[in-house]
């Protein structure tokens, strides 16, 4: 009889400890999700808001991704727009030049298969899916050069698809835009 009672008590204790742990687990998950939500909204680090499209079949003929429109351009409000294309197995422009401490709107797409790009030493990272435009608000806080590899398997030449990003002083950048509407490293 005593054993029975002990068993009953033991079971109640076991269930109580287990409930406590379950509650703690729910709190842990809740805090993590809450943190991500708060940072996402508070610091406006939400992913791309809407879906934009671009036909890879006519990219080179019309629209914002024609060759003469690729590269970095200064907008009326002082921000910079960078437009780029990924294709097997290079980026156009192959070297992107951007000014320091300036809000930059990065717009890119793919001309053939799925590519991606990331800029090493930064948190800039996006996919390039043919048919869709990837839009990314970025800002550089230090001068220098970064490598920009394609981060998605895009065929047997994938390992050779490395671009570059050069961050230059803002006045130097503006001086160069005076001579040319769309900048790349080689201009």
């Amino acid at each position: 009889m005593a054993v029975e009672t002990d068993h009953g008590i033991g079971e109640a204790v076991a269930a109580r400890i287990e409930r406590r742990w379950a509650t703690l687990s729910i709190v842990i998950v809740g805090v993590l999700v809450g943190m991500a939500t708060f940072i996402g909204i508070h610091q406006a680090t939400m992913p791309q808001g809407r879906v934009e499209t671009a036909d890879p079949g006519t990219l080179h003929l019309s629209g914002e991704f024609i060759e003469s429109n690729l590269g970095s351009a200064v907008e009326a409000d002082g921000s910079v727009t960078v437009r780029a294309i990924g294709q097997q197995y290079s980026f156009t422009p192959q070297c992107v030049v951007v000014p320091l401490e300036t809000p930059i709107n990065f717009r890119a797409t793919s001309a053939d298969v799925v590519h991606g790009l990331l800029i090493e030493g930064t948190n800039i990272n996006t996919m390039l899916v043919p048919g869709y435009v990837s839009v990314l608000p970025i800002r550089f806080k230090a001068l220098g050069e970064h490598v920009m590899p394609c981060q998605e398997f895009c065929g047997i030449g994938h390992q050779g698809m490395w671009g570059k990003v050069k961050v230059v002083d803002k006045t130097e950048f503006l001086n160069r835009t005076a001579a040319k509407r769309r900048l790349t490293c080689v201009d």
Binding site: V29, P47, V51, Y132
Partner: peptide
Amino acid sequence: ADPQVGAGFKFMHSVFTG
């Protein structure tokens, strides 16, 4: 990091992943 899904559903899936 994909352009073909909007922010709202990315958020939903992030929460469920938690």
